[in-house]
Simulated assay, not measured.
Amino acid sequence: MSVFNSSHYDDHELVSFCQDARSGLRAIVAVHNSNLGPALGGCRMFPYANDDHALDDVLRLSKGMTYKSALAGLPLGGGKAVIIGDPASLKSRDLLLAMGQFVNDLGGRYITAEDSGTTVTDLKIIAERTSYVSGVVEGGRFGGDPSPYTAQGVFLGIKAALAFKHGSDDLSGVRVAVQGAGAVGRHLIELLIAEGAIVFAADVNVKHCQLAQQSGAVVIPCDHIMGFDTDVLAPCAMGASLNADSVEIIRAGIVAGAANNQLASNAQGERLLRRGILYAPDFVINAGGIIDVYYQRAEGGSTKTAAHLSNISSSLLEIFTQSAASGLSTVAIAEQLAEDIFLNGLRVKAA
Rank of each mutant, 00 (worst) to 15 (best):
N50W: 11
N50L: 06
V174N: 06
P281A: 05
K159I: 00
A49G: 03
N311T: 15
F142Q: 12
S23Y: 11
A264Y: 00
P281F: 00
S2V: 02
I285W: 00
D169S: 14
S131N: 14
V178Q: 02
E339A: 12
V58T: 07
D292A: 15
V120E: 04
G78E: 05
S323H: 08
F200E: 03
V218D: 04
E13Y: 11
G253M: 10
Q336L: 11
G79E: 05
A30L: 08
I158G: 02
S92W: 11
E138Q: 14
E339Y: 01
A113T: 03
L328W: 06
Q19A: 14
S23L: 05
S6P: 05
D203Q: 11
E335R: 11
P87T: 10
H32N: 12
S34F: 03
G173N: 08
A49W: 07
E128T: 12
D292M: 11
L162H: 05
D11P: 01
A160I: 00
Y110A: 12
Q214R: 12
R22D: 15
G182V: 02
M65D: 06
E318A: 15
S92K: 03
G64S: 13
H12S: 04
C222Q: 13
I193Q: 06
A88S: 13
L316Y: 00
A49E: 09
F228I: 06
I341P: 08
A161C: 11
Y279H: 02
